[in-house]
Amino acid sequence: MVEGVEQAAVPVQVRELVHAYGEHRALDRVSFQVSPGEFFGLLGPNGSGKTTLFRILSTLLAPASGQASIFGYDVAAQPDAVRSRIGIVFQSPALDDMLTVEENLRHHARLQGVPRRQRSQRVTELLTSLGLSDRRRQRVGQLSGGLKRRADLARGILHRPGLLLLDEPSAGLDPRARRDLWRTLDKLRGETGLAVMVTTHIMEEGEFCDRLAILDEGRLVAMDTPANLRAAVGGTIVTIRADKPDDLARAICEQMKIDARVLDGAVRIEHADGHALVPRLASAFASRMAAITVQIPTLEDVFVQRTGHRFEDEQAGEPS
């Protein structure tokens, strides 16, 4: 059991996980690990298998083969040990609209087995820490999307889990509420060392994560920090707006011996160090340029490079 002792500190350990619905392989030999206090993101379009993976880690679905463990406990063999150590925030908040914020939290505190004597204190503590104190007697059905999400987050961490699983937490949130959510998560990490695993199909949300795994058609196609993933695509992208982009692109190719293409009416150059290139371009072609920008590749570029196809953002699709 030496391995078990070492594993106890690992929030998530997934090895060669496979799950299929009939012929369709939703997860194909997926392996990764989440470290204590880490924000780990699972990025993929709808149907990429991330919801299946989420349900397996939540103990709601048994994997077909492979192994998944939470703090050393196997999700299929020891579900109750896993359940008391994870907090889960589902895509759709698990709160009863007819009940007040406080009633909801007390109810779930009982279901999670928070000892009777600590229940009131814990609920008050969370309401204060998440800025919901003045809403405690309000029915959940009357809250805005952002506040409801925050109340649901409070529900998820009532029992002080070491790991929080969030499924598409930004669904239905405006950008401000989204930033607010991530700030709250960061604060919780500072206070409790909470590890967070989040699934998302929103590129910008991936940027909030320490590490990102990109899932496509059930396979893990990339896994690294967002910065490293972007860097791997290749340096920078320089875009030049010009009156005659075709002429300018040809001139740049001939005179500077770099590859310049025209895309959407602008000159596009993929270059390892675009910032150093700008002054050289400016001094040579200043009169022929209207504007010049240097961009770091986005996660969208990463996805395109790794999978060879575009990241489809189908809002209507059912998560698999």
């Binding site: 008391s84 150590r85 009940l99 109810h107 009982r110 279901l111 928070v114 600590q118």
Partner: peptide, 28 residues
């Protein structure tokens, strides 16, 4: 992990809690 508040919730507590919720919903 030391801070976890989760104990085994038992049978009676959750049943009462779920029952209370059912009645609150109905009355409202």
């Amino acid at each position: 992990m030391n801070g976890t508040l989760a104990a085994r919730p038992g049978l009676v507590g959750p049943v009462i809690s779920l029952l209370e919720r059912e009645i609150l919903r109905f009355v409202r």
